[in-house]
């Protein structure tokens, strides 16, 4: 059942104020919190996309990671299979605080809309015009075995040509993104062992 002809074309890791693509550091910043780090990364990458500033932190993190990998990809049939631990809890807490505010309890539509983890899949789909399969899973930790089984099913049934897959998590000031692009050609073997190796290494 395993589609043997697929590879990992590229991967991106964002953690500890570093953006790494295929073993190479793309951007690093010694100080600052996550949102200022992401803003600087956006400027550094010379992206022009005003909607970026409207996104919540999870979407910004996913957007930047996806940008590094999809920038040069022309294949529009690229599925998005993402996962994390904290769902949209970082934004959920904000919505929850604003509706129970003791002075001015209000619900903000611009915050509420981000209280779903899959909104970041929508943001990436809009940015790269992907009318493709989307799914967002929640696990206690990065689960390459399950993600690989699921991706194999999408590839072997011809539902997609490429998959942008991985982990993107934001929880207060802690964050971690590890996305990889599965394609017919690439430098890394597409196996759970290799995914575990790449994830642990960076």
């Amino acid at each position: 059942m395993k589609p043997s002809s697929f590879h990992i074309a590229s991967y991106c890791r964002i953690i500890d104020n570093n953006i790494v693509k295929n073993d190479e550091v793309l951007f690093t910043e010694k100080t600052g919190d996550l949102s200022s780090f992401l803003k600087k990364a956006y400027k550094h990458m010379e992206i022009r996309y005003p909607k970026f500033f409207k996104m919540d932190t999870l979407s910004k993190l996913a957007f930047i990671a996806a940008e590094t990998l999809l920038k040069d990809s022309v294949e529009k049939n690229t599925a998005l299979v993402f996962s994390n631990k904290s769902s949209s809890l970082d934004t959920d807490r904000k919505h929850s605080a604003s509706i129970t505010d003791s002075v001015h309890p209000y619900a903000s539509p611009a915050i509420f809309v981000y209280t779903l983890p899959n909104i970041c899949l929508g943001e990436i789909s809009i940015r790269h015009s992907l009318y493709s399969e989307n799914s967002f899973f929640i696990f206690d930790e990065f689960n390459p075995r399950l993600l690989t089984d699921y991706c194999d099913s999408l590839l072997s049934t011809g539902k997609t040509e490429k998959i942008l897959c991985g982990w993107v998590d934001v929880d207060k000031q802690e964050y971690d993104a590890f996305l990889y692009l599965i394609a017919r050609t690439g430098v890394y073997p597409y196996t759970t062992d290799e995914l575990t190796r790449l994830y642990r290494k960076t």
Binding site: N118, F137, I138, Y150, D152, S153
Partner: peptide
């Protein structure tokens, strides 16, 4: 396995179940 994909979650979960069974 938690699937949290907004309002399509329920029917997508059935698709995911099918795919994982097909995938053995």
């Amino acid at each position: 396995i938690i699937l949290s994909n907004a309002c399509v979650s329920g029917v997508l979960a059935l698709a995911v179940a099918k795919r994982l069974i097909s995938q053995k």
